[in-house]
Write a protein that binds this DNA or RNA. Structure first.
Lengths: 331, 331
DNA sequence: CTGAAAGCGCTTACAG
DNA sequence: CTGAAAGCGCTTACAG
């Protein structure tokens, strides 16, 4: 490029980046030559020089325990990924998806991003430890429950949402609310459970809850119903709050199959709406956590960290939107 | 790192990469020091040296015309993205998603990948031209219809699928089959349409088809029904093949709303199943294009190109699986 | 068996 | 206003 324009690399760099001082005409000529020969500075060389590639990493931790990388019907994380990509683009960054860069056999490039967004980290998550040790900026979406105040974190407000939904179920006629959570040890599962137990203690209800592995997906329906309505079904619930939309679908479907009417005998609600909750029959009441907004805020926060600006922590997730549907509306 | 181990960078490089010759004990010691201080070679420096970052790019072209980056209910591309990420990982690469790296204002890093998978390129797609000009290896998933034999391409077999589905509709009782495609000028839309027109000519049916912008999503239902059943509805169809699952949902829903029974009066089928086709009522017959397998094969092909191996072209997509559902089964 | 040197393509402090 | 030099952290051909 420098040769093509008949100047030094220094001058090319100055002209194209508007740094030093370059005579107007020289800059003009350099730009023209660049356009003509289709010159694009190497992102890699620039990255080496600036120790910044213009690359962000998105680490969706729950994928680590799910059976496939993007399981069917988990649109929450897909909406996260799409919005994160777009937001990154808008700020001049590319975005790559990696699962766990600390795993053996992971490409070195998995750790080459300028910063990371880590969704739903586990308790004492080794990925966060690694990023911290490498001094790579990152934002946790949902706290590491063992180290709540150590990292820049978006509070996803699972506890508030649990209370809000339980109260909705009660106002819809529930007298005994059960809870279904996943088994990953993250803030989403554990804060929801704790909020539920608190609520039970407060209103004097005997807690009834079960943790089912995320990878079970809709199969959680059968498992939960066996637990709630099998054998000694004396204390059977008349409402269930499931964190995952797929669990809620599974429960609604399994309940109907067993002759338990939804919503007349059992109210069902989901903490994070999946697409099928809108289209199945009956449709299922769910929160829309606004994953697009979550991803946007998290990406913008990590970019600020990368660029040396301050980020308040914890900062809040957008408000969850409660979509009322057939599964909690008795007529 | 070299200092910490008391050897030269050369020896570190040799030891850690198993290249040159290093005394057993020296290598051992270097590995131990590396583990102790948590040394990881810089992917960027290595990338500059090898002109290879270990990074792949996934360019999903239809996003360019859709209204949001990842529209709700388009699980096809999400399954592509997930599987592509996973496959890349398994081969020692990371994967980033970009929309159009040739757009102004795109981060330079958007062109820093070692190779790209470009799904559903447009006719004379400028992205393919750019990659070719920059001599960056890439694989097209679906042909650039203006340049079918110029690039390494996966043939997605849209024409065969169209014929197969139309014949299924006929065997399910259709006497007049209409077609709904999108407006993007890509092989998926145009090859399907051509196959349909050929089929019409062959059996002597008067063609009845409409192209509706992809971004309309389910709203395509109303639009298509206005066209097929509005005003001069003399030649109304009794079956519709829609390429997109969302279009099929929209049509089935809109038909029922207008008092047209599905499947009794109108058979509906989709060329690429969306999740809601399985959960809505009636469920909609659709192809599962096996996007996971498509992505896996495409990623493996581009890796072979990057590593200098030959790739046959065109190579074939996996067989589309036909899922028969209520929308094409009269009882 | 080990290391000094050159170079990947940029940017930046500095000299002219 | 422009350019020569150094250096970002690696790898590789080559010398010892």
């Amino acid at each position: 490029m420098a040769r093509a324009a008949g100047v030094s690399p220094t001058t090319v760099s100055h002209a194209l980046n508007g740094k030093g001082v370059v005579r107007r005409e020289t800059e003009e000529r350099i730009r023209q030559v660049a356009a003509r020969i289709g010159y694009r500075p190497s992102a890699i060389a620039r990255g080496l020089r600036n120790s910044r590639l213009g690359l962000l990493g998105l680490i969706i931790r729950p994928f680590d325990t799910l059976d496939s990388f993007i399981p069917a019907g988990v649109d929450y994380f897909l909406r996260i990924a799409g919005s994160a990509s777009l937001t990154a683009m808008e700020h001049g960054y590319s975005l790559m998806m990696v699962d766990d860069p600390s795993k053996r056999g992971r490409p070195v490039s998995a750790l080459a991003a300028d910063g990371y967004v880590v969704t739903e980290p586990f308790e004492n998550d080794p990925v966060l430890s690694l990023l911290e040790r490498e001094r790579i900026p990152f934002v946790a979406v949902g706290a590491d429950i063992a180290r709540r105040d150590e990292f820049v974190t978006m509070d996803t407000l699972a506890d508030k949402q649990a209370v809000q939904m339980i109260e909705h179920l009660v106002s819809a006629g529930a007298t005994r609310v059960a809870l279904v959570v996943g088994t990953d040890r993250n803030a989403w599962n554990l804060d929801s459970r704790d909020a539920y137990l608190d609520w039970c203690a407060r209103v004097g209800q005997d807690p009834l809850w079960i943790a089912i592995p995320e990878a079970q997906g809709e199969r959680a329906g059968e498992i939960a119903l066996d637990r709630f309505f099998g054998e000694g079904a004396a204390d059977a619930p008349d409402a269930v709050y499931c964190l995952m939309g797929r669990q809620a679908s599974g429960i609604a479907r399994a309940a109907v199959a067993r002759g338990i009417s939804v919503p007349d005998e059992l109210l069902v609600a989901a903490g994070s709406g999946a697409l099928q909750n809108q289209t199945m029959h009956p449709t299922v009441t769910a929160f829309d956590l606004q994953p697009e907004v979550i991803a946007q805020r998290a990406v913008e926060a990590v970019i600020r960290l990368i660029e040396g600006e301050a980020v308040e922590t914890p900062f809040e997730a957008p408000e969850a939107l409660l979509h009322l549907r057939e599964s909690t509306q008795r007529v």
